[in-house]
Amino acid sequence: MKIILTVTGLDHTGIVGAVATELTRQDVNIENVSQSLMDEYFTMIMQCSFDENTQNLADLQDAMKKVGEAQKVKVRIQSEDIFKAMHSL
């Protein structure tokens, strides 16, 4: 399953590391990353994929939510479908 993971919040050391480490632990492959900083505001968008037969979306969302809480940023995981549906003809 293809997902879009977005991270937003105040910038500090270690956000990318924490997110990437947990994704590795969850056996999620990072296919594309884009990260930017506007003033103090950190934004990262990752396109990832995982095997639906071995990994469950709800569990993954829970695990990444915990990372977000620990890092004091907001981490969302959404199916790629919502963005495709809204923005492509």
Binding site: I4, S34, T43, I45, R76, F83, M86, H87
Partner: peptide
């Protein structure tokens, strides 16, 4: 970058 903008717009 435009797909990034689209993703952030949806959110």
């Amino acid at each position: 970058t435009d797909s990034n903008a689209n993703i952030l717009e949806t959110i």
